[in-house]
Write a protein that binds this DNA or RNA. Structure first.
Lengths: 246, 246
DNA sequence: GGAAAATGTACATATACGTGAATTTATCTG
DNA sequence: CAGATAAATTCACGTATATGTACATTTTCC
């Protein structure tokens, strides 16, 4: 079950992150198609908790810096080492595609850092973006770091859906693809999950954290170059990863 | 009406900001005394939206960097000029008390930047902290920047409560105190709102934004020094505020 | 290795909560 | 400055939703 008002809080914040300016109750209500009264209650709750204020009289609400203060506290724990951002920045620059660091979240894989391609046609992903762990290059690069038992436990929770023609729709299909990836030296996906999307990924264990790095873009552009891109990822990781850390 | 599940989202995030480590469903449920099933729904919602993930298998949930990315986007609009943070940092260092930048939010005043005292007994305030605009030094320093009509409009919404012995409990009392503050050159409060708390504040208009700066601490310590502290605030603002900006 | 304890998930039901209509307050316009 | 219009706020009701209970799964401990 999805908790509606919890989701609404996130939507409001995303709204402010997009518009980047104060908004009145009416504007917010109209934007989402919410009743004024419900919007009123939500805004009152967020204000009362100190997360919204009114920068100038009658100009509407805007989030307080409290969000930032809280997010900083939360994210300064185990931050990603700085070189991982350099990694995806370099990869994106050299390939012209979108590069990301990915972490596991149950049966999904979450993008925890992203550098987007600047190409007009590109893979649009943001931090927090989620994809099925078994049907994506980045996800499978995570699964490669699991023990067989751990993989089993994940498999049992997966609902296998035919997202695209090549989506693995059984445990055996996933395991086969993992074996192929091992042999190949990297993970790949050709529209396994998203139409027209291809990508290459490799595992990126950091400390005891299981991450992966992926470069993805439109199939027509990146498809033929997947092996080179994979080699580039590996080389770039070698170059940037501090030697002392395993 | 307070929207429970909206508030719960904030509570969860604050919880993570405090503990700074992943937490399992059970831990979160127990901590808040929420039913497991409800907690499950909330966590599922936050996860589905890409705001929580599971850094390592079976180790529980933790917020994704998406919070940080969103908060950054939101807060990089009209950020406070850097010298305002220097201002409260200097004030806190020199006085040993807590110094803050405050903004209006209806009948309340919100702390939008805070440098805390390091004294064991101190005014504990965080960004997002809210106090009544009419019953605090910082709030009245905001009201001084309003037109009489705007003040009236605020007054009509205030519920006058006797927070302490000196709380102004009528519009006239507030207006009188504002006139005194004008004459005095700064705003002050002696336990008008919080027991044992005294403070000095002055208006701090920046561009078209109405802010104030306040230094506050325990009455026994800061009380006798309020005039000096007020003078220090004024001097420090003069020193730090760029001359070009009015 | 097997039983017990803890954790995670599903579902029906009663109730807290979101909503539409009404009221009040603010803003615009001639 | 009034009258009109729009926005903000309140409130009582009916329904969407949080919860208690039951079941499944995983982990711990002996």
């Amino acid at each position: 079950m999805i908790v509606r008002q919890a989701a609404n809080v996130l939507e409001i914040m995303e709204f402010f992150a997009q518009t980047r300016k104060p908004a009145t109750l009416a504007e917010i209500a109209d934007h989402f198609g919410w009743p004024r009264s419900s919007t009123f209650n939500l805004l009152a709750t967020l204000s009362e908790k100190g997360y919204l204020y009114e920068p100038r009289p009658r100009a509407g609400f805007y989030p307080t810096p409290r969000w930032l203060a809280m997010a900083r506290l939360i994210s300064e724990v185990e931050p990603l080492p700085p070189w991982t951002h350099t990694l995806i920045a370099d990869l994106s620059a050299e390939t012209g595609e979108t590069a990301s660091i990915v972490a596991p979240a149950g049966v999904m894989a979450v993008f925890i850092d992203v550098v987007e391609s600047r190409a007009p046609i590109r893979y649009f992903a943001t931090i927090g973006h989620r994809v099925p762990i078994h049907a994506t290059a980045s996800g499978r690069a995570l699964l490669l770091q699991y023990s067989p038992e751990e993989r089993d436990s994940v498999y049992r929770k997966i609902e296998f859906k035919q997202y695209g023609p090549s989506t693995p729709i059984s445990i055996e299909a996933v395991e086969t693809e993992l074996r192929n990836s091992m042999a190949r030296g990297y993970c790949q996906s050709f529209a396994d999950y998203s139409r027209d999307l291809a990508g290459a990924a490799i595992p990126l264990p950091i400390g005891d954290r299981r991450l992966s790095v992926v470069v993805a873009g439109p199939e027509f552009r990146i498809g033929p170059k997947v092996p080179e891109v994979a080699a580039l990822i590996a080389r770039t990781v070698d170059r940037l990863r501090p030697k002392t850390t395993a």
